[in-house]
């Protein structure tokens, strides 16, 4: 008995932590199904009421005070997250391939220029980037929402590290079989980097889905509201916030990125901890 007691403590602390971490989400789940007026009186219950599930249909179709239908903003978010994730992979993979498998003039200069973007998050070049967008006539367009976020130093660095570790024998064998550089890229390099691409996809999808400052700045057209933008708008309504709808939207907005992380957890953890350092 004396030896088993201490073993319970880690379990107890971890379970407590899990519950505390999940509490904000649970409040949103339970609250979404309750009467808005009751919530406004501070009478939110931690037990969801099944009869209130209709709110999900309601916000998806009609939206809430301050923001339009949620199906639309979910669609914008999904399109944006996918465009950014695939765009970043599609740009970074060839870049990393070029700097690791070839020698060409200004190779390292190009690499360092891409690398510099790590030090230039959108927050430090806010106004000038906006001015560039407006001179290219990309304000309030889906292209404007995504394209500037598609260049990626992180992904390029990660692919470069993976490619540096590819054994010389593999390259020589491919060359012996008569594979040119593009065929090597397509038939060998991309397949062997599958796990890294999957891990990167998770990180980039979540990154794209969670954007706030950039959409806030560059897309003022409500048609381009992402779900994250919509929900902050709903909360910002000063009078008569429809709290159950806010909570339902929060739950809907959380499902896609959380699902991607949980479903792809294995690759994600491996890619994050082995690649990024």
């Amino acid at each position: 008995m004396r030896r088993r007691m201490p073993a319970l403590i880690p379990h107890a602390v971890l379970i407590l932590a899990i519950l505390l971490f999940a509490l904000p989400i649970w409040i949103a789940v339970a609250g979404s199904t309750q009467d808005s007026a009751a919530i406004a009186r501070g009478e939110v219950s931690l037990v969801p009421s099944l009869s209130g599930l209709g709110v999900y249909r309601d916000v998806l179709v009609n939206g809430s005070a301050g923001a339009g239908p949620v199906w639309r903003s979910l669609l914008v978010s999904a399109a944006m997250a996918l465009a950014i994730a695939f765009g970043k992979i599609a740009l970074s993979l060839p870049s990393a391939y070029a700097v690791t498998f070839f020698r060409f003039p200004f190779r390292m200069t190009a690499f360092w220029l891409i690398f510099l973007t790590l030090m230039l998050p959108v927050e430090v070049r806010l106004i000038p980037t906006f001015q560039v967008m407006s001179s290219l006539d990309l304000i309030n367009s889906f292209t404007g929402l995504t394209i500037p976020l598609v260049a990626s130093a992180t992904a390029t660095l990660l692919f470069r590290q993976t490619f540096l570790a590819v054994p010389d024998e593999l390259v020589e064998a491919a060359r012996m079989d008569g594979a040119g550089p593009l065929r090597f890229l397509r038939d060998i390099l991309i397949p062997v980097s599958g796990a890294n691409i999957a891990a990167l996809f998770v990180i980039l999808f979540v990154y794209g889905w969670n954007q706030y400052l950039w959409p806030l700045l560059v897309a003022t057209d409500p048609k381009l509201d992402t779900v994250v933008i919509s929900i902050v708008k709903m909360v910002g309504v000063d009078t008569a916030t429809e709290w159950n709808k806010v909570m339902a939207t929060a739950v809907l907005a959380l499902i896609p990125p959380v699902a991607v992380v949980l479903v792809m957890q294995r690759w994600f953890v491996k890619g994050l901890t082995e690649g990024d350092k």
Partner: peptide, 12 residues
């Protein structure tokens, strides 16, 4: 059970 808040947007 502890990994999922990674996916939560800062605004969320």
């Amino acid at each position: 059970m502890l990994i999922w808040p990674y996916a939560v947007a800062p605004a969320m």
